[in-house]
Amino acid sequence: MIVFLAKDKLPALLSELNEMLEVVAPVRIGNDTAFATWVGQPIDFEKNPQISPTEFLLPQREVLFKYIQHSGRYVFEEVEPKSKLILGMRPCDLNAVKVLDKIFGTEPFDKLYFRRRRSAILAVLNCSKPEETCFCSHLGAGPECIDGFDLLFTELDSGYLIESGSSVGMLILKEHSDLFQEVKSVYLAEKNERISKAKETLNSRPNLSKDKIMGALETADWESMGNNCLSCGGCTFVCPICHCFNILDLGVPDGERLRCRDSCILSGFSRMAGGVNPRKSAGERIRNWYFDKFQFIPENTGLLGCVGCGRCISVCLASMDRWSLKVPR
């Protein structure tokens, strides 16, 4: 099913949806654009936010369960996630969700992840405005979304084309049909034109295909990269596929066991209690980060561990060229 929504009708649609579930969308906060709960703020589809909406599926910090001591024994409580509609997720991030689904879906199945995943409706936005650091098209992860969405938005001059990609998506389109208009063929032409333009922009950039990057991995000077690295962990915190987490307890005798994001760039990540560390140097840890994305994750899931969103480039504190893997000297 495919419909057209005039630009000025978007808030009305979101308000109606908001009555049933929490709507998460890219909104303006100060000069920035970030995904947050929509409560009527202006939507901003111009920029792809630095923090991927995958944080709503695998939060930075979530309660695994509460433990409560009760006459010597413990009672455990879990928290149910709220249903959400995530609007404006771009194709790169949707591809990241596909990788996360595989990782958390392999045995043993991660129930907590899928409780959030199943309660989230993904309304993806075809990407007509790639950021300067984007290279998704070289890795087959954008700018156009083909499948895996519940709803797919394409921004046009006067409104949005909205396609459904699942029964939930179709239901939403049917339920709010009074807001939509019929799709004219010029709209479809405009969609194609916008996407080809985005593709053109992306393809005109230096080639960062898998083979090219794999080649760079073979010759990279990991030690120099390690010497430049300021150990901020930014690359791991913005990557929509990075999913390393730590588990910790807060509170005695009652408290919470939390799952918090972690970073393989930190030396404590792999260091064992006795002090032995299989990845001692910063260089070894950076190398492991790259090989995980281009070799280990593909071996384990069949999907590439990088979607070319370019966030790790702009977040890097050291002046590292993260993808030619060269360090200024």
């Binding site: 630095q50 923090i51 977040v315």
Partner: peptide, 22 residues
């Protein structure tokens, strides 16, 4: 508080933070 992220438009830090900030 369930998370922290940098402000990309901050005139000095420009969307970057150190590990303590994150």
């Amino acid at each position: 508080i369930v998370g922290v992220s940098p402000s990309p438009m901050h005139p000095m830090s420009k969307g970057r933070l150190c590990i303590k900030g994150w």
